[in-house]
């Protein structure tokens, strides 16, 4: 059975079902991360001293710049499709994928440095919430990379059959990706700077 209104908007909502669907999913994601941010506040309020300077601010800043850049390349990948520039779309989507991979590599080095000095999540309350929040965020990055890899590979053939539906899929991927960027925009100061 074909899913209705995935190419053209429903007359009553003015939206494609897929777009409303991805926004509902993102609403549930806000609740997921919201619960963890709330946990962070409870944990922080519960101790007289909160550790500072345990994380590498330089690496955190570089990762922030990388993720913001990847958000721009993602939205440009969608805009290129709307402008019928297939080559540019591929270039921007590949750049987004590469930037997200670099983000994870940097995160790996950060994690490795902690584990090498025996500072796993069990070490302190701060590191427990740090690994939980950044680990969940990292899994979201990985999920986004799987979707991008699909649209760079086998999923790209849809563009020939139905370019409008393909652009809608890239838009939904972009909405998810910007949300992942949005979460990091809050995680960075909360964990690295405050």
């Amino acid at each position: 059975m074909e899913i209705p209104y995935i190419v053209h908007a429903r007359p009553d909502t003015g939206l494609t079902n897929s777009k409303l669907g991805i926004w509902l999913f993102l609403a549930s994601e806000v609740m997921l991360f919201g619960a963890l941010f709330s946990t962070y506040i409870i944990l922080r309020m519960g101790v007289p001293e909160w550790p500072h300077g345990e994380l590498d601010v330089v690496l955190g800043t570089i990762n922030t710049i990388i993720l913001i850049s990847s958000s721009v390349t993602m939205v440009m990948a969608w805009a290129s499709l709307k402008l019928n520039e297939w080559g540019k779309h591929r270039l921007y989507l590949t750049a987004t994928f590469a930037l997200s991979a670099i983000f994870l590599v940097i995160k790996y080095f950060e994690y490795a440095s902690h584990f090498a000095s025996g500072e796993g999540p069990w070490h302190s309350t701060f590191l427990a919430i740090y690994f939980t929040l950044t680990g969940l965020h990292g899994l979201h990055i990985l999920g986004g990379m799987v979707v991008m890899a699909y649209f760079l590979g086998p999923g790209a053939t849809l563009h020939k059959r139905n370019p409008e539906q393909f652009a809608n899929r890239i838009e939904a991927t972009g909405l998810y990706w910007h949300f992942v960027d949005l979460v990091w925009i809050f995680l960075f100061p909360v964990l690295y700077l405050l």
Partner: peptide, 17 residues
């Protein structure tokens, strides 16, 4: 519709905070 979804999200997010 998107604003409607987000309004509900914001209300529940504030409760969480």
């Amino acid at each position: 519709w998107i604003y409607g979804v987000l309004l509900l999200t914001v209300v529940f997010f504030i409760v969480l905070m």
